[in-house]
Computed example of a mutant assay.
Amino acid sequence: MHTGILPSALRTLHGERPGVHIALYNLPPAEQFEGLRQRSLDIALVHEPPGADDPDLLAAPLLEDPLLLALPAGHPLADQEKVTPGDLDGRPWIAIENTQDPAWRDTFIATCTAAGFTPDIRLEAAEPLTALGLVASGLGFALVQKSMAHATTEEVAVRELPWHETRVQLWAAWHRVDLRPLVAEFRTTILRAGEAA
């Protein structure tokens, strides 16, 4: 939702076909893919696509969202124009859980280490908005998607990290065989919204 892709596509669909019923579900990728196969879902938005050799499903990339540093606005680093890996080494961090990756914590630490710093993870947040709230409380730093930057408050400063190359990807996935023209139309609308994002 926070990327703007789904709200834009839903707004377009509602404007063109106001009588269409839309149901949204927050499901893990495996359940979304199974829902597509069983035809209980029409389209899935996931961070990783189904396999290229999947006999039933197709996918297309929608967005690559860079990660930004979120830090308390009162922290001395908030006034620096450029933040280096050395500036972040050993600082208190809030890690954002990734339920799609069982080894998410190790992945986070490895990504930070590869970028040149070691985070001191003090807290874990179930989702980015919680992490931003903890940052605003002065409890540590977090890496959040650029599309989340609009959700910050004046207590949170956001800085780009050009040297940190990790990006969060968003994909649309669907069944190879369209049974209803409306599904193909909505898929096209979502793909266009991704191009505009």
Results as ranks from 00 to 15, higher is better:
3 T>Y: 05
3 T>V: 05
4 G>V: 00
5 I>G: 03
7 P>I: 04
10 L>K: 03
12 T>V: 11
12 T>S: 12
12 T>H: 12
15 G>Y: 10
16 E>P: 05
18 P>G: 01
19 G>C: 03
20 V>I: 09
22 I>C: 11
23 A>E: 13
23 A>D: 11
24 L>C: 15
26 N>W: 13
29 P>E: 13
30 A>I: 08
31 E>L: 15
33 F>N: 07
37 R>Y: 02
39 R>D: 15
40 S>L: 12
40 S>R: 13
43 I>H: 04
43 I>M: 08
48 E>G: 12
49 P>K: 00
49 P>A: 01
53 D>E: 15
53 D>S: 15
55 P>R: 11
57 L>K: 00
58 L>T: 09
61 P>A: 12
62 L>W: 00
62 L>S: 02
67 L>P: 06
69 L>R: 01
70 A>R: 00
71 L>M: 03
72 P>D: 05
73 A>S: 12
74 G>R: 00
74 G>K: 00
76 P>Y: 01
86 G>A: 06
87 D>A: 10
90 G>T: 03
91 R>E: 08
93 W>F: 13
95 A>Q: 04
95 A>R: 00
96 I>H: 05
96 I>G: 11
98 N>I: 07
100 Q>Y: 09
103 A>Y: 07
103 A>R: 05
103 A>E: 11
105 R>T: 13
107 T>I: 05
110 A>R: 06
111 T>L: 11
113 T>I: 15
114 A>G: 11
115 A>N: 03
118 T>L: 09
118 T>K: 10
119 P>H: 04
120 D>H: 05
121 I>N: 09
122 R>N: 14
128 P>W: 04
129 L>V: 13
129 L>E: 15
130 T>G: 15
132 L>G: 13
132 L>A: 09
134 L>C: 10
137 S>E: 06
137 S>W: 01
141 F>Q: 01
141 F>K: 01
141 F>L: 03
143 L>V: 08
146 K>Q: 14
148 M>A: 09
149 A>D: 03
149 A>T: 00
149 A>C: 03
153 T>F: 01
154 E>D: 02
157 A>L: 02
159 R>N: 00
160 E>Y: 02
161 L>E: 01
161 L>N: 02
163 W>H: 02
164 H>V: 05
168 V>C: 10
172 A>D: 05
177 V>F: 13
185 E>H: 12
189 T>P: 08
189 T>L: 11
193 A>G: 03
195 E>I: 14
195 E>S: 15
